[in-house]
Amino acid sequence: MQPMSPTIKVEELRKAYGELRAVDGVSFEVQTGEFFGILGPNGAGKTTTLEMMEGLRKPDSGSVSLFGESPWPRNPRLLPRIGVQLQASAFFERLTAREQIRTFASLYGVPARKADEWLAVVGLEDMAGKRNEDLSGGQQQRLSIACALAHGPDLVFLDEPTSGLDPQARRNLWDVLRDISAQGRTVVLTTHYLDEAESLCDRVAIMDHGRILQSGPPATLVRDLDAPTRISIETGTLTAEAARGLADGLEVTDDGVSLTIATRTPAPVLSALAERDALRGLSVRGATLEDVFLHLTGREYRA
């Protein structure tokens, strides 16, 4: 890997709303071209952190630097270089999708034709003539992302970009975001979805109660966890008793729907199951960020 300069540098960031410490001493760096994810449940402090980075909120203490400059107070040198999709979409009243994106694009000096292309990128060309009040939640979400990207920013902030999207739209958006990232742009995204973070991000920070619990590439986090693989088959295919006898040190649970065997050496267990022709409804699941979260917080992850 080449030495990279940090595009974002966040140090000891803190923000309290009254008694509530929404962000409580957060530090991290994001390198140029990196795809960085902040993962955490509701109220973890993701949006607050992002808004302080964007220059929308003044930190109580700590510092943010983007491209070596402070985003607070409103910094006109930074603004053309960053693109922001806010968690709550913001649109002009009674304008059509096409008018919205053209208006936003023109604020950055981007011509209408280029703005229109972005409608197609997020799959809204058929909706171009509809007013934003008449778009569905997911369509508004996609429009909002297109508006954030239309001026080709070097640094993109996305606050839960896929919330409210159907699975198809979600996959399509992932492709769009991978393209953006492949063009060398830096992307910071927050999400509830562990699979999203795993599949998109070069690096994730797991956040809860205003603090970053751990950060690193998703694969490393999972590997370091050294969690067992879970093998599930349909209940009734094999008794729990029989399952425990397959190998040493197996942890077996049966919830009445499926029987789950947790093991660190899945290969022998799988072949033993195959020998007994007990593979009905088989699924094998390695450790995920969910397990990392569970391990870090001691509670089940609920998005």
């Binding site: 964007e54 220059g55 929308l56 409103r74 006109p76 603004l79 053309p80 960053i82 922001v84 806010l86 709550a88 979409s89 913001a90 649109f91 002009f92 009243e93 936003f104 604020l107 950055y108």
Partner: peptide, 18 residues
């Protein structure tokens, strides 16, 4: 008021518009 309430001002604040 509506532009503030509907977050349009906030969105405009993020753009380089004076």
């Amino acid at each position: 008021v509506t532009w503030r309430q509907k977050k349009i001002l906030r969105r405009l604040r993020l753009s380089p518009v004076p």
